[in-house]
Design a protein around this nucleic acid. Structure first.
Lengths: 348, 348
DNA sequence: GCCTGATGTGAGATCGATCTCACATCAGGA
DNA sequence: TCCTGATGTGAGATCGATCTCACATCAGGC
């Protein structure tokens, strides 16, 4: 009653029998190792081919200890940033015979922990992950201690000894802020995601450092926290700008938030950049379509995935070196969403 | 020399030994089946817990024949449409203890075939795929014949007996066209992806049928073909509109193309809807941000993934019924990107 | 007191590929 | 001719979990 999908039958044993050799010899012929007579080898290969034999990767994995799988745990696969990385990772890893198992942590530490456990028991060969918390990560520390190959991407986790690929979040954010400040802005709002997230911390640091460098006090009420989705960002933006002395500028920490901010500001009847100047972290396709076009801090996103894949592959190949930490620079792409602050609002 | 990542040691044998029972008894206690003494069961559970035992899913899979993995082959994971579906599938399947292996066919039949083979030898339990070709699909037919659980999503493949979840592409496209025609448009361009893709065929059919119903001849030169990326769509749009008697309206078959068209039209200095009216298939976040807001054919995207997952789970649970074909209706969301055609351009 | 069936438990087989080891066979050197 | 090493091949173990079967033990019914 359970012959559902078992027509996949051809095993090494079948091939061996049909070629009238032992399983050992068949295996030798198929994987070309050890001694095998030429005639025998050819015969086995022919038989295997005619029978449509394909090695069972699960059995191989049991023997070898690992499946040719790599686990990818992005914060959210729906974020175009991670979708792009997933795509690049998959393409790159495929070249090396690995498949990608994607499991989104949805920015929950508990879920991340659970998924990691689950993938571990699946014997995946390595992990590429964007830790949902920079500090609450004993599970990642343990994973690394157990020798699992890990590459952190987009975000770093404290105390975890492993390779990482990130961008210069602090510098990028600072550059964006410098630009706003140079345009006379003082009341600059920040829309960021939860503070346990590494990038949120670094970008917030850039925000703070830029303010400090210019002697501008940090006003906590100008910092909005939101989940990284368009919907949440809309609400958060409305909250930030529903006050009398509203900010003259807004810096958003990722493209989904930027889009949410865009929608929120328009719904509030605030024009960009006349009423509010805007700079977003992470570029997006329609940034050049909007009117005005949106000024952003662009990340070299096309390089992140491939580099992470490469680092992981090297580890899988046994490379033993100290953890490598790759940090790509960002680039401020000035478009039209920032205007000098209206003079009348400057005090003093 | 190979003790890289093998600290994962605790096996059933270890637990059994520590609890002073046989592997069989330990297994019974852990999986609660058969007869096990109460004391024994408790002891085994405690020991397993203290040792941090976690069943090796690969070994289980070898025994059972299948890994708790589902293969998902979208046309392109970077397309927000598929990214959303991937997210929903993953969340749904996780509830049933399955992980999702994502392998993007990148709209290549050869790659699709290869990935399918690769996932097959991985003994994944089922497949959810968006066939890259409606007709060139012997590999999928074979897969289905071999009894592999398959659910087609977004696209159907000819001659494949399996469940499917799609939307009413013809109807949606026709409705969009009817709307454009009702606004006086006659020279309506279509930007679609390659014709082997099921949705392209159906949406093209809707385009054709609407024209026919209104006695408007099909002008092949108004049909642009492009890969489904913003970049390719930009080029294709420019080609479509770089002619003297340019179309008065454009219908794009997916959101990436709509965005590409938006960028292309703006770069050509064509205003929407003054110079060109636009309707896109598939809604997107910024459709309400642009000025004017973009009229689209919305798909019930939130329902696609969960439904597909549900159908697949039922199959995995052994449900034996004829293939079920779910088709969701679409909805024309009228916003501001369509205007009545300028009178002067009407002839007669 | 003997038999039957319920209850517990363990030995060993199994899934499929791979690897170790032992055993052939054969050629060439001493 | 005998020995040695290169060459081929197969039997069986192994990876870890699970399942079948056989074997205990014990209670209650006759």
């Amino acid at each position: 009653m359970d012959r559902t999908g078992n027509r996949k039958g051809v095993t090494l044993k079948d091939v061996a029998a049909a070629a009238k050799v032992s399983r050992a010899t068949a295996a030798r012929a198929l994987n070309s190792y050890g001694y095998v007579g030429d005639d025998t080898a050819v015969r086995v290969l022919e038989v295997a081919d005619s029978l449509g034999y394909r090695a069972n990767r699960v059995a191989q994995a049991l023997r070898r200890g690992k499946l040719p799988l790599i686990g990818f745990l992005p914060g959210d696969i729906q974020n175009p940033f991670f979708a792009r990385i997933a795509h690049d990772l998959e393409a790159e890893l495929r070249k090396h015979g690995h498949n990608l198992v994607i499991a989104s942590s949805e920015e929950s530490v508990a879920q991340e922990r659970e998924l990691l456990e689950s993938l571990r028991s699946l014997s995946v060969r390595g992990f590429i992950l964007a830790p949902t918390s920079a500090s609450d990560n004993q599970h990642i520390v343990n994973l690394a201690k157990d020798g699992a190959p890990i590459v952190l991407i987009d975000r770093v986790a404290e105390n975890v000894r492993c390779d990482s690929v990130v961008v210069d979040n602090e510098g990028g954010a600072r550059e964006a802020m410098e630009y706003l400040i140079a345009n006379g802005h003082r009341r600059i709002a920040l829309l960021r995601d939860e503070s346990r997230i590494f990038t949120a911390q670094e970008r917030f640091a850039g925000y703070r450092n830029a303010l400090k460098a210019h002697g501008i006090g940090l006003d906590e009420s100008l910092v909005g926290v939101s989940r990284s989705t368009v919907e949440h960002a809309i609400e958060a933006t409305i909250r930030l700008f529903s006050r009398r002395d509203r900010p003259t500028a807004l810096f958003t920490v990722d493209s989904l938030m930027t889009q949410g901010a865009l929608l929120a500001l328009r719904s509030m009847g605030l024009a960009i950049p006349r009423d509010v100047s805007l700079v977003g972290f992470d570029d997006f396709d329609l940034a050049t379509f909007t009117d005005p076009q949106i000024t952003v801090v662009a990340q070299p996103i096309a390089e992140l995935g491939p580099r992470a894949a490469q680092l992981l592959i090297e580890r899988l190949d046994g490379k033993k070196v100290a953890p490598r930490h790759v940090r790509f620079p960002t680039r401020l792409v000035v478009r039209g969403s920032v205007a000098p602050v209206a003079k009348k609002r400057l005090k003093g």
